[in-house]
Write a protein that binds this DNA or RNA. Structure first.
Lengths: 232, 232
DNA sequence: AAGAATCAAGAGCAGTGCTCTCTTTTTGGT
DNA sequence: ACCAAAAAGAGAGCACTGCTCTTGATTCTT
C-alpha cells in the first residue's frame, strides 16, 4: 500500500492523511468536537506524534479554515464563470445559490468560517487572502456589469451613502479595482452581508417553523439585493 | 452576609450566583471556554454539587441562551418604543443600531445565539419564543407604518416574490399578525437577515482591513433595507 | 561510516464533563 | 416533638482532552 521513499514524501503523505482525517471529523462533530487525539487515533498514531506535523489544535483549525475558504471561494468563482453569459441578475443569483449550496453541504465548515471563533483564537493573516475570494467573486459580477454598461443606476438610494463612508469606499474601490458610485458599493455590501446572514440563519435554525421554502426565499432575497445593486 | 431561611430561598440564591458566575465566564472565555468546574470553583462549590442545580453543561448553556435572547429582545423592543414617534425609517435604523450595540457590547452572547451551535447541541423549544422577540420588534415597526398608511409601496420589486413563497408568507402573516404584500414581507426578511449578517461579519472580523467606519456602514445598509421595505 | 536531524512512542500533567457514594442538614407528616 | 424522607454538598473516580518531555529507532547529510 505504501512505499514512502524519501522523507519529504513521507511527511507530505502523513500530513495529507492527518488533514483529511481532521476534515472528516470536523464534518461530523464540528469544530468544537474536533480532537487531536482522536485524529491521531484514526491515522494510527499516538497523540504526541501528531505534534510533529501540527503546532497545536489551533494550528490545525487554521489550516482547515484556509482549506475551507479556498473551497468555498472556488465554488463561488466557478459559479460566477459558469454563468458569465447569463443575465447579470441570474449570474448574481446563481453564484449566491452556489455559496448557499456549499454551506448546506458542509455546515460545519461554514460555521468554522463564519460562526463563533474558537476560544482564544484570532484568525491569523494567512486566512485573509483566501477569505477574500468569495466577496471578490461577487464584486466581479458587479464590475463586469458596470464596465459593460449594463448596470442600472440605483433608484434614489444615493442619499443612503453618507460622506463619512467615502473614505472607506475610496480605499475599497482601489483594492477591488472598481470605480462605482458609493450607492452601488453600498448595495453590493448589503447584498453580500444579507446573503451570509440568511445562510447563517438557515443553518442555525433561526427560521425554524417559520420558513419551509428556504431555497425559494434565498433566491428571492438574493434577486432583490441584486436588483438593488442595479443588476438586470 | 447570608441568612438563607427557607430551602427554596436558598436554592434560588445559589442558582442566581451560579448563573451570574456562568455569565461572567461566558463573557470572558466564550461559550466553548465555559467550564462547569470553574463556575463551581468561583462560587465556592465542588464540581459535583452544581449538578443539583443544573442538569448538564448543555442545560446551563440553554439557560444562558434564553437569558440572552430575552436581553437582546428587550433591547430591541426598548429601542423600537423609544423611537415610536420618530420617522419610520429612523425608528427602523435606531432599533437596528440598538441590536448592533448590544451585540458589540457582549460579543460572546451574540455568538452564543447566532454563531456555531454547541457540539451535539440542538436548541430546545424553550428558546424559540424569546428568540422571536427581535424579529417581532422589527416587524412591529413595519406593521405600525403600514396600518398608519405611511408605507410606501415597493418600487417594482414585486416580481421578486415567487408564488411558491406565498404559502410560507401566508402562514407567516398570520403568526406575526400583519397583512402586507409579499414584496413587503420579502423586503423585511431581507432587512432582518442583512442586519445580522453585517453584525456577524463585524464581530468575526470578516471585514478586517476593509472597513473602518462600521457604525456608519451599518447605518447606511440598514437605512437602505428600510427604504426597500417602504419605510420613510 | 559518523553525526545530526527527524520521527514515533510512552509516560505524565493539568484540565474537562459526569456519575456514584457518603455524610450532613433541612423539611414535612404523624 | 419525633422520625423518616428529601435535599444539599463533598469526595473519589472514570474517561476524555491538549500539550510537554524523555527515550529509542530510523533516515538524511557530510
Amino acid at each position: 500500500m505504501d512505499a514512502p521513499r524519501t522523507r519529504q514524501q513521507h511527511r507530505e503523505q502523513v500530513t495529507d492523511e492527518l488533514m483529511s482525517a481532521a476534515r472528516r471529523q470536523l464534518a461530523q462533530a464540528g469544530a468544537a468536537g474536533l480532537s487531536l487525539r482522536s485524529v491521531a487515533r484514526e491515522i494510527g498514531m499516538v497523540s504526541s506524534a501528531v505534534y510533529r506535523y501540527v503546532d497545536s489544535r489551533d494550528d490545525l483549525l487554521t489550516r482547515l479554515i484556509i482549506e475551507s475558504y479556498d473551497s468555498l471561494g472556488a465554488a463561488a468563482e466557478h459559479a460566477a464563470s459558469e454563468h458569465a453569459d447569463s443575465g447579470d441578475l441570474d449570474r448574481w443569483s446563481a453564484t449566491a445559490a452556489a455559496i448557499r449550496r456549499w454551506s448546506l453541504d458542509q455546515p460545519h465548515d461554514y460555521l468554522l468560517l463564519y460562526g463563533s471563533p474558537v476560544p482564544g483564537y484570532a484568525a491569523p493573516q494567512d486566512t485573509t487572502t483566501p477569505g477574500g475570494r468569495v466577496p471578490l467573486a461577487l464584486v466581479s459580477i458587479v464590475r463586469d456589469a458596470r464596465t459593460a454598461g449594463r448596470l442600472v443606476p440605483p433608484v434614489e438610494a444615493d442619499r443612503a451613502a453618507p460622506a463619512t463612508l467615502r473614505v472607506d469606499f475610496d480605499r475599497l474601490a482601489e483594492v477591488i479595482d472598481i470605480e462605482a458610485a458609493p450607492a452601488i458599493m453600498l448595495a453590493t455590501i448589503t447584498g453580500w452581508t444579507q446573503m451570509f446572514g440568511m445562510i447563517g440563519f438557515e443553518l442555525t435554525n433561526q427560521t425554524r417553523g417559520v420558513i419551509d421554502d428556504h431555497a425559494g426565499l434565498f433566491d428571492a432575497t438574493t434577486r432583490l439585493t441584486g436588483w438593488l445593486i442595479g443588476l438586470r
